[in-house]
């Protein structure tokens, strides 16, 4: 035996292969305006935004242990900020999206200080209260249309691009880059020191505490960053919709229930899970949406079954069979040929 027969590395063959495939897929997706129809582009744009929301929720619930059922607070907040900043402050829509993220981070600070006092499941309901406060609050702002909401003025829509096809392409590219940005940020964050600390906290809070990891601070940072991104996604969502109202902006079903189902079905606590979950969700939606309420009941039943029978979701089932990791987080030990 010599001591050099084992190698420790982060990368794996599957990861390298998938990185190459991923780059190719990305190039094809960027070119979508030249090969896809308008309806398909719309659908893909929506898919990317859900993918981003799901990755963010997964970062909070699956890694930081912050199970929120109130992410619609920041989706709606971002949407309203887009409207307010473009309509009253005269910002360009893209600048307004970035500003919405910044404001989302700002507002999430006092929110976090308050609701971090609640533990576990009570934290979850606390986030919902916050979302309700936001919804009722924005319904009181008559300049933004009050309870019935308002539409984005045509002049602002045109400032994005004067031609409709170009607007749709921009909107699509924004959604695609949001998804790529979020997934990449989550991935690199989890690989960083702070991210590893987060995984340590998830796996054992007491042990992490004794290692000197400041749990409160780490969770706080995750919450604020997630809120900022979620607000930006919210702004993008309502830039596509061009119309906003309190009920649509702060819908618990649209921005939290679906997102939770995506993550649970795909596999909570993995980076791949939300991606797979988003595809499964859209596949189900496009094939079953005609069933209306029955479709939602089916979705609920599937989520419960997955939670009980396969808590790591579809990706977990896949990984149990094949030891594959597309986004390598941990280090792996492999035997090196003694040549």
């Amino acid at each position: 035996m010599n001591s050099q027969t084992y190698a420790v590395s982060r990368s794996s063959r599957a990861a390298r292969v998938s990185a190459i495939i991923g780059t190719l897929v990305l190039i094809i997706l960027v070119a979508a305006p030249w090969w896809a129809g308008r309806a398909d582009m719309r659908l893909m744009g929506e898919l990317f935004l859900y993918l981003a929301l799901a990755s963010l929720w997964n970062l909070m619930a699956g890694y930081a242990g912050l199970v929120s059922v109130g992410q619609q607070a920041f989706v709606g907040f971002g949407g309203y900020m887009l409207f307010a900043l473009t309509m009253f402050a005269g910002l360009h829509p893209i600048t307004a999206i970035a500003a919405a993220g910044l404001l989302g981070a700002l507002i999430s600070v006092p929110v976090a200080v308050l609701i971090f006092r609640l533990r576990g499941a009570y934290f979850a309901i606390g986030t919902w209260v916050i979302a309700e406060v936001f919804r009722l609050g924005f319904a009181q702002v008559s300049a933004l249309g009050g309870g019935s909401g308002s539409s984005l003025p045509v002049a602002i829509v045109k400032s994005l691009a004067s031609k409709r096809a170009m607007r749709e392409s921009i909107s699509y590219w924004l959604a695609l880059s949001a998804a790529v940005l979020v997934v990449a940020s989550v991935y690199f964050f989890l690989r960083s020191r702070k991210g590893l600390a987060l995984t340590a906290i998830r796996d054992n809070e007491t042990a992490a505490d004794s290692l000197g990891i400041d749990i409160w601070r780490t969770k706080f940072v995750v919450y604020v960053v997630t809120s900022a991104f979620t607000a930006m996604i919210g702004a993008l969502i309502f830039l596509q919709k061009l119309r906003i109202s309190p009920d649509a902006a702060f819908s618990v079903n649209d921005w939290t229930a679906f997102v939770i189902f995506i993550v649970v079905i795909g596999g909570i606590g993995t980076i791949e899970g939300p991606i797979i979950g988003t595809f499964v969700f859209f596949l189900l939606r496009e094939t079953l949406a005609d069933l209306g309420t029955v479709y939602l009941i089916v979705l609920g039943v599937v989520a419960i079954l997955v939670m009980l029978k396969a808590p790591k979701g579809l990706w977990g089932l896949f990984r149990a069979r094949f030891d594959v990791q597309i986004f390598p987080l941990g280090y792996r030990v492999s035997k090196r040929d003694p040549s």
Partner: peptide, 28 residues
């Protein structure tokens, strides 16, 4: 009962799913 244990997620997410099921069953 199947969701109870040290992990917070199963009861939370299962009752959340249940909430959506009840709501839509009532709608139906």
């Amino acid at each position: 009962n199947q969701t109870l244990g040290d992990d917070l997620l199963p009861p939370l997410l299962v009752t959340f799913g249940l909430s959506v099921i009840i709501q839509n069953a009532l709608l139906e």
